[in-house]
Design a protein around this nucleic acid. Structure first.
Lengths: 197, 197, 197, 197
DNA sequence: TATGAATGAGAATTCATTCAT
DNA sequence: GATGAATGAATTCTCATTCAT
């Protein structure tokens, strides 16, 4: 059985994810977790602390998943495809609670009172992992010779852009995840054939 | 000289853009515009109405700019490059007030009480314009044969992803706009040469 | 007619005086003043600011009264008697609201969050005035040769001690004010007669 | 070694003395005593009960000390001097925890929920003892013929006034205790010499 | 004894909105 | 058009108290 502390964390991920930091109330969280609201402060202190705890918990799970996905015997381009696949799978599995990560992210406007520096640090892990893959791909010739930093940021932007489209907009976007992976692949893939032409 | 009404609208774009709908107060807007807070309701009614007015004003300016940028004698791929260039130029020109569009957008979580349907309708213009370019490019062979809907959404996601990276994150991202245009170009560009190989 | 702002100030003096800073609620003040509690913050900001405003208003009135009482053509001892008489009269006239001064005073424990330094500065006026009288009395031989600083503080302590006894305790203390003036007089009075003995 | 119960009592004297009844929390007391907050209620019941216990413990120690100080072979005036000396010595010895007595006293505003009648009864001991000394002094001609009740209350006010000045205010008050004793002595002392004049 | 999880009443504060001037 | 006095709903946070272990 889940402890009440865990229940609060999950409820916070849901509530903040759906309604945002300002709109979701501590009472909302307590009601979802089926505990008294006093218990929320008891365990997590202020609303901001709870928000960070909820966001970082989700980020840590995703980071673990992404690291798992890129550690096999893959070349750089495969690494990136695997990273993207893992990312998209994770969002699908946590549709209800994933949006907390879209909110508690340096790519979103930080809610007032939330420590943006701490969040940016946490998220740099996501970018670093991508940079590693891009560098690897350039070394092993699976990826064109591109600027590593910018490319990693663009790929991350691609991923999050599609996640936003899928989770937040009403636009029909069946298959957007698959197409995004192809889109990135086409853009990065080295074409040694042309040399031979 | 700016009318007070205009001053309020600009102040609202700044305030909502920087602080978000919930956090920015009507008084914040009034102070920035150097008017009494009573005048804000006098002209714009409720806070939600003001938010929509501020967001739509910015959206309309951008739409005009984008339509301008794609109406010359361009092929589909050039159209998209021109669209992206115009989009990025616009964000640079309005760095201070542009973020209202990131907030008042279906790609963001709608703030409570804001009419998401109206916003989604307004923003479909951005996507429709891109779809037009993609279709054109497929017809004129400047763009590969790709699913139009998904591709347009992915490109839009790419654009907004890079704007977010540039405007919101602390990550170093010099030249990300130029790289994003190249990234999209590489991915879309048809390669008839390979046929000839 | 009293303005609502004045009504709030008076209500605050009553409420804080009777119940103390921590115990009196902003709502208590609003109810006594017959205004909405929102108006209290509107005019006075935080509870602490209101407390200081209420205390300083009372202090300023008393200071004016005391300065009035000591400015005639009096010798030092008469000055002190006049000061004490004015002080006691003032407390009698404001029995209901005077206790705010016992609370908002460096001779009391400062309530948390209240700026003790500001309060101590304000109250130094009371002590300075007494020191002036004592010095005068020593010069004009109406008062013994006593240490000025300590004597002034002791007299002030005498005054406030008797006010506390009268306003706060259940002990029967008819005539304590008159006796206190005599008590101080006997202690300070120079006795040149003894020289002649 | 101190028992945990004693530790709680001392911690309560410190915490209530420094922060006041309303501001000090049960948790504050528990932390100072290095026990869990549950143990505080376990031993002392409610917060009010603890406050009274803490105040009365201090009062009882002081009463014992004062009775000790006045029981020798002294005339009335000496009795009072001895009482004052003992009082001041006691406050010096317990600077950290003495302020609880300034708070838990009928000469202060009773905190809400604290039984003012019980406190007034306890404190009447202090006044009764002084009255005894004054009466004695009038009988033995060491003290002028003064109203006993008022004089005792004024002396007590003198004592507490100086303690407040010393413990609470930032005003420089070196030697105020010694001067206070002299001040009271000058005021009370009978001057039979004048008769002879 | 001793702990701390759990509760919920209560307070301060913020702020959109209305409306008289 | 323009101001800001006035209101009160809503939210966060604190904390005494209870109780199971």
């Amino acid at each position: 059985m889940m402890t009440k502390k865990e229940a609060i964390l999950r409820a916070a991920q849901e509530a903040f994810g759906q309604m945002g930091f300002s709109t979701a109330t501590v009472k909302d969280v307590a009601v979802r977790a089926d505990v008294s609201f006093g218990l929320v402060s008891h365990y997590f202190g202020s609303k901001q602390d709870l928000f960070i705890a909820a966001g970082f918990d989700m980020a840590d799970r995703l980071i673990a998943r992404l690291e798992e996905s890129t550690k096999g015997d893959l070349n750089g381009l495969e690494c990136i495809e695997s990273y993207m696949t893992a990312y998209f799978d994770f969002t699908e599995e946590h549709r209800k609670r994933f949006p907390i990560l879209l909110r508690c992210s340096p790519f979103s406007h930080m809610e007032p009172g939330v420590d943006g520096v701490k969040v940016a640090e946490k998220f740099s892990t996501f970018i670093e992992e991508l940079k590693r893959c891009v560098s690897l791909g350039i070394s092993d010739d699976s990826i064109r010779d591109l600027p590593v930093e910018e490319t990693a940021l663009i790929i991350y932007g691609n991923i999050v852009g599609s996640v936003r489209t899928s989770l937040l907009t009403p636009y029909k976007s069946e298959g957007i995840f698959k197409e995004t992976i192809k889109h990135v692949g086409r853009s990065l893939k080295n074409s040694p054939a042309q040399v031979g032409c």
